[in-house]
Design a protein around this nucleic acid. Structure first.
Length: 887
RNA sequence: GCAGGGGUUCCCGAGCGGUCAAAGGGGCAGGACUUAAGAUCCUGUGGCUUAGUGCCUUCGAGAGUUCGAAUCUCUUCCCCUGCACCA
């Protein structure tokens, strides 16, 4: 048969997509009788350009999962929507004069069209877009609730400012001092900003990571981001003054090696008001402070930077050593880390070492590392920061650094010199953005009443349509009618907040809105949300590991505390798909290595693309696109049509049934773990088998169509209907397999091993229960080692056997016999019976020809022989299963 | 440096104690079909050998555990991905 052409597919795809839509077969319903399954892909930013194969892959990963779950009897919610607020629309408005709303809605229409062409089983009736007032109204609603509870607040803070984007960025968006969007340098600026108190939830965000099944990598990233650490704040009394200086550290174990104290230039103790710095040092200190203030944090702590600082003229005493330590000021110490003062341990901290070298301060070794070097520390390479044993540290000597840390913390607390403190790295979530295209923050500033929230019934505070996009800065501030308003409290004149919320607010709860997307009076109906959420399977890119995924978790916890929902984690399971590469690089327009959805579907049809993308590598791995590779998938699809022509209404024979059950088992069992390639291999193996038959039984082929339908829904639907079926295969019941019908004799070696493994397990269990009184083991010579393995497994479970076996194995004579395997096994087994005194293994026999003996014993043994040795590859024929008889 | 994940036969990629010279796909070679291409289908694809078969070498490198290792342990080299003068 000829290949199906692109036009053929275009027609077929449209036909079934329309039919599915018309019958609403993918509509999600809350069905109390069924188990629910919420499958969710991270909602995309609506870009107007075509989907490339990387996008296709992402969407299809979810669709296969959703389709499989639906067929398996779950009530499935599988929605799609759009993260439609954001900078690109605003940039377009500035550049091309198109209104962001028009631009966005146009893009949405396009991307929706491309997505629909994939044939994904989304419930389109539940779609949403974050720029719609019906949606962002609830952002404002939640914001006001948080404001009432003190979870939202405004403060002046040094923030990350991106010149290019003319906006503030969250910490998460400015990692490494670069803007996550434009990659430009981020500068620090003091501005009034709105924050959400995510730090209040740091503990729960950390602890609850244990409740969810996420990739370890993502969890680790979140743990690092939250950065919970146990610190100890130690007070050192300043000589000749009432005040103490409080330093903070997570590593007090090395404090016997402390030789100085350093503090941040902004430290309050240095202020003129405190008047602690001796007069002769005052000028030097002030000059230094001025110098330091000109630098950004990044400059101050940049690697390889020469250490600078001045002596303050002050001293304090290290209680542990009773030694006097000079107090210095330096800019590598940051005020907002710990207490803004650090005890200098130059022997075991690179920064301290560099500082000590620079200013001739003493260096003491208190830790000996793996290398055993105990000499004086004079070189940077000798500075031991990790792992080691304490020396020169009084009562800590000989302990490893971790034990020493605990011990010294206890000691310091006991003496009243220090206090343990839990500190987190995570900072409050800054949500203000000086942009138009986002949710307006619903507050006004009144001269009399101060900050006043918009009353609930006035929500949403709508974005004004008419604004000037040509200005630098926030276009929203140009709308007089928006800015000038009345105070809801005193009805006097007031100004509206012109900052909008960052997009991560939108994406923190959109998955709740899908459950009830048309609700006009509430963000969602609690019952519906509690039915569907938590999301059972969330699918998306790993780039959201800390931002979106931590904010959404925070939001859900807050909403739970508010009593809206009953769960406290939004996403039970998380799956990160890999990126598709081509020519060694990510697909991007600028590199010109983009393969579009349409490039493939126009030639082979979208199902071929789906099959290829799911087949060629595991969805979590990155994959390299190859134009040649797709031919293989195309062949599989064509083979389906070819095999379908051989269909007759005949009964499937035993072998076919066995193979079919095998295929169902493999195809289904690998979906939950996203081992799609394995599923497809099982499917194509069975297809190839059917192809080898003269006549293909209809029932078996139809079952095959069911199991392939999640991957290639259009093809499956087309052939299904060609065969005269009236229903949709897309919502057919996933076939059940019967392990008993899978006859290992028909299967390949792999499966034999598999079944043998279950035998082993069974024997193990029985052995544990001490029910085994007799084990007869018949093996073909080919299986001798395997059989020995079984015996060993049993012995591990039964100490009485085990001892005997051990003795046996230690026997030199036996070792010698190792080469002669059948004899070895036979002797081993017999000896084992003797020495164990239990004689539990009897009639051990290694059969040179397995067949007759097995037949005699069990009656039913059939050994497949290559009917014609020329036709059947030797490796595919197998001589007989080892048999275990347990009495 | 820390944390997470990897290195498999020409390529991609499975396997994770014994039927493993290692699934599947691609590529390549040969064959069938065709006037010919294309498509499709079969066969082969580490080396040496046989009528079936057997033997040797191979899963980054080295060592170990085991009767037996691509699979387990240790050491080592390399690659990717996050985090980072966080005290």
């Amino acid at each position: 048969m000829d290949n199906k052409s692109g036009t053929f597919w275009l027609e077929v795809e449209k036909k079934w997509q329309d039919a599915w839509g018309k019958e609403n077969i993918f509509q999600a319903k809350e069905d109390p009788k069924k188990k629910k399954c919420y499958v969710l892909e991270m909602y995309p930013y609506p870009s107007a350009s075509f989907l490339h194969v990387g996008h296709v892959r992402n969407y299809v990963i979810g669709d296969v999962f959703a389709r499989f779950k639906r067929m398996s009897g779950f009530s499935v919610l599988y929605p799609m929507g759009y993260d439609s607020f954001g900078l690109p629309a605003e940039t377009a408005a500035k550049k091309e004069g198109i209104h962001p709303r028009i631009y966005t809605e146009d893009s949405m229409k396009k991307i929706m069209g491309y997505q629909k062409a994939l044939g994904n089983s989304y419930d389109w009736s539940r779609t949403l877009a974050s720029h719609e007032p019906d949606y962002y109204k609830w952002n404002q609603f939640f914001f006001i609730k948080m404001l009432e509870k003190g979870l939202a607040y405004r403060k002046k803070a040094p923030v990350n400012w991106c010149e290019t984007c003319q906006s503030v960025l969250a910490n998460e968006e400015a990692e490494g001092g670069k803007c996550w969007r434009c990659q430009n340098e981020v500068v620090k600026r003091d501005m009034e900003q709105w924050f959400l108190k995510i730090t209040d939830y740091a503990d729960r965000l950390l602890a609850d990571l244990d409740k969810i099944q996420w990739p370890e990598r993502i969890k680790t990233m979140q743990r690092n981001w939250i950065g919970r650490k146990e610190w100890i704040d130690i007070d050192y009394k300043i000589d000749g003054a009432k005040e103490s200086i409080t330093v903070s550290t997570t590593r007090p174990d090395t404090n016997f090696g402390a030789t100085f104290v350093v503090m941040a230039p902004e430290h309050p103790l240095l202020s003129k008001e405190k008047n602690l710095v001796p007069a002769d040092r005052r000028k030097a200190v002030d000059d230094y402070i001025k110098l330091a203030q000109k630098k950004t944090d990044e400059e101050r702590i940049a690697e390889g930077m020469k250490k600078t600082g001045v002596f303050t003229g002050l001293y304090c005493v290290n209680q542990l050593t009773k030694k006097k330590m000079p107090i210095w000021v330096t800019d590598f110490v940051l005020l907002n880390v710990g207490t803004g003062a650090v005890v200098g341990v130059p022997g075991h901290d690179i920064r301290d070492f560099e500082f000590a070298k620079e200013f001739g301060l003493p260096v003491i070794r208190v830790v000996v590392g793996k290398d055993g070097d105990k000499s004086e520390i004079t070189k940077k390479e000798q500075v031991q920061e990790e792992e080691g044993t304490m020396i020169n540290s009084g009562f800590l000597d000989g302990m490893n650094i971790h034990d020493a840390t605990k011990k010294v913390m206890d000691y310091l607390e006991e003496k009243g010199w220090g206090r343990r403190t839990i500190r987190y790295k995570i900072r409050d979530w800054m949500i203000s953005r000086q942009r138009y295209w986002g949710t307006p923050i619903p507050v006004v500033y009144c001269d009399k009443c101060g900050v006043v929230a918009a009353p609930e019934k006035e929500l949403p505070v709508l974005l004004p349509e008419k604004v000037n996009f040509k200005v630098t800065g926030n276009p929203l501030a140009t709308s007089e009618e928006f800015v000038n308003t009345k105070c809801p409290k005193c009805k006097g004149k007031a100004k509206r907040e012109t900052d909008t919320m960052g997009g991560f607010v939108d994406s923190s709860w959109y998955f709740l809105r899908y459950c009830d997307n048309k609700n006009k009076t509430k963000p969602f109906d609690e019952k519906k949300v509690n039915y569907w959420v938590p999301v059972d399977q969330y699918i998306g890119g790993a780039e959201h590991a800390v931002m979106h995924l931590i904010y959404a978790r925070f939001f859900v916890k807050v909403l739970k505390d508010f009593g809206y929902i009953k769960f406290d984690e939004p996403f039970q399971k998380l799956f990160n798909q890999g990126i598709v590469y081509k020519d060694g690089a990510k697909m991007s327009k600028s590199k010109g290595n983009v393969v579009f959805q349409t490039d493939i579907s126009a030639k082979y049809g979208i199902d071929t693309a789906r099959l290829f993308l799911m087949f060629v590598s595991s969805p979590d791995k990155q994959m390299e696109w190859s134009d040649e590779g797709i031919e293989g998938s195309s062949r599989i699809i064509n083979r389906f049509f070819r095999v379908a022509e051989k269909i007759k209404s005949v009964k499937s024979d035993k072998k076919t049934i066995s193979k079919l059950n095998m295929a169902i088992k493999e195809a289904g069992n690998n979906v939950d773990t996203f081992d799609y390639p394995k599923s497809i291999i099982a499917i194509s193996d069975f297809l190839n088998y059917l192809d080898s038959l003269e006549v293909v039984p209809k029932d078996s082929f139809e079952t095959l169509l069911k199991i392939v339908s999640p991957f290639c829904p259009h093809m499956a639907e087309e052939i299904w209907h060609e065969l005269g079926n009236k229903s949709f295969v897309s919502i057919a019941e996933w076939p059940k397999f019967d392990e008993k019908l899978i006859d290992v004799q028909f299967e390949k070696i792999d499966s034999v091993i598999y079944s043998l493994r279950s035998d082993i397990i069974r024997v193990k269990q029985l052995a544990k229960l001490e029910k085994v009184t007799k084990v007869k083991l018949f093996v073909a010579p080919e299986w001798k080692w395997k059989a020995l393995g079984i015996v060993q497994s049993v012995c591990k479970e039964r100490p009485d056997f085990g001892a005997a076996m051990k003795a046996l194995m230690a026997d030199a004579e036996m070792k010698k016999r190792g080469g002669d395997v059948p004899t070895f096994l036979k002797t081993a087994m017999n000896r084992l019976s003797e020495t164990s005194g239990l004689a539990k293994f009897d009639e051990v026999a290694v059969l040179n020809s397995a067949k007759p003996a097995l037949e005699k014993e069990f009656g039913v043994v059939e050994i497949i022989k290559a009917e014609d040795s020329k036709e059947v590859k030797a490796k595919n024929a197998f001589p007989g299963k080892p048999a275990l008889l347990i009495e």
